[in-house]
Amino acid sequence: MSRRKLTEDEIDLWKKVASQTERLSPTSKSVSPYPAQPSAKTGKPREPQVSPLPDQFEIGSRARSKPVKHDLKPSLARSLASEPVQMDGKAFRRMKRGKLRPEGKLDLHGMRIDAAHPALTRFILSSQGAGKRLVLVITGKGKDRDEPGPMPVPRGVLRHKVPQWLSLPPLAQAVLQVTPAHVSHGGSGAYYVYLRRNR
């Protein structure tokens, strides 16, 4: 069985399709499978249409950039430092340097969460009622070892819970600013809590 020859229209159609397709190996030169045939109008052989080669490939040009590392839980000090300063700026700087003397102190060392939360609530609300502005809440830094269990527990449970409790009602309306204490007052194991004026 002999193969029939393609007509001129079929060859033109194939060349159009071939010119619109994307080459799998861009470095190889395209050679038309059909020899140039003379045009019916001019009688001169038609040149095969060769699509231009794409830009040269460079190693790494299509590589994806390194994924951004996500900090799902920023450190406690960084999250407190990112909060805007609500109190007087000069007093805030003096407080951070340990130059302001706290008017009251609550030590939560050794307390469990169920006892520490009500004690903190009582202390903050009574301090505000007494007209105090700056109080110190000592939480301790926590144990060095991880707590056993399927979920990791951050070191110093009270150290992490106290800022959360201070930002929620009923304490949120009494608290103006929370920041880690100066080393002279306990460092990262204590917090300065600056209270709003009692109205």
Rank of each mutant, 00 (worst) to 15 (best):
M1R: 03
S2F: 07
R4K: 04
L6M: 01
L6G: 00
E8H: 08
E8D: 12
D9H: 06
I11Y: 00
D12H: 06
D12L: 03
L13Y: 06
W14K: 09
W14C: 13
W14P: 06
K16I: 03
A18L: 11
A18E: 12
S19I: 12
Q20M: 15
E22P: 05
R23W: 06
L24N: 07
S25G: 09
S25V: 15
S25D: 13
T27I: 10
T27H: 07
S28C: 02
K29S: 09
V31T: 10
S32Y: 11
Y34L: 08
Q37R: 15
A40K: 15
P48C: 13
Q49M: 13
Q49Y: 14
V50Y: 01
S51G: 07
S51V: 09
S51P: 15
P52I: 09
D55P: 13
Q56M: 13
F57H: 09
E58Q: 13
I59D: 08
G60V: 03
G60Y: 00
S61E: 15
R62T: 09
R62Q: 08
S65R: 04
P67Q: 13
P67K: 11
P67N: 11
V68N: 02
V68I: 10
H70F: 00
L72C: 01
A77W: 02
A77D: 08
A77T: 10
S79K: 04
S79A: 07
E83Y: 04
E83Q: 10
P84F: 00
M87V: 10
D88S: 04
D88M: 03
D88C: 04
G89H: 12
A91V: 14
F92V: 05
M95P: 02
K96Q: 12
K96E: 12
R97A: 15
R97L: 15
G98S: 05
L100N: 13
L100T: 15
R101D: 14
P102H: 04
E103L: 07
G104P: 02
K105V: 06
L106S: 14
D107W: 08
H109A: 04
H109V: 03
H109L: 08
G110I: 06
M111T: 06
M111S: 10
R112P: 05
R112V: 13
I113F: 05
I113P: 00
I113E: 12
A116R: 01
H117C: 06
P118R: 09
T121Q: 14
T121G: 03
T121D: 11
F123H: 00
F123L: 03
Q128K: 09
G131C: 04
G131I: 07
K132C: 00
R133Q: 15
R133H: 14
L136K: 03
L136N: 08
L136M: 04
T139S: 07
T139I: 04
T139C: 01
G140E: 01
G142I: 01
R145K: 12
E147H: 12
P148A: 01
G149F: 02
G149I: 06
P150G: 07
M151T: 00
P152G: 02
P154L: 01
G156Y: 03
L158P: 01
K161S: 08
V162N: 00
Q164W: 00
L166G: 03
P170A: 01
A172C: 07
A172K: 12
A174W: 07
V175Y: 05
Q177E: 11
P180T: 09
P180H: 09
V183P: 14
S184T: 10
H185T: 14
G186P: 02
G187A: 08
Y192L: 07
V193Q: 03
L195N: 06
N198K: 11
R199E: 05
R199Q: 11
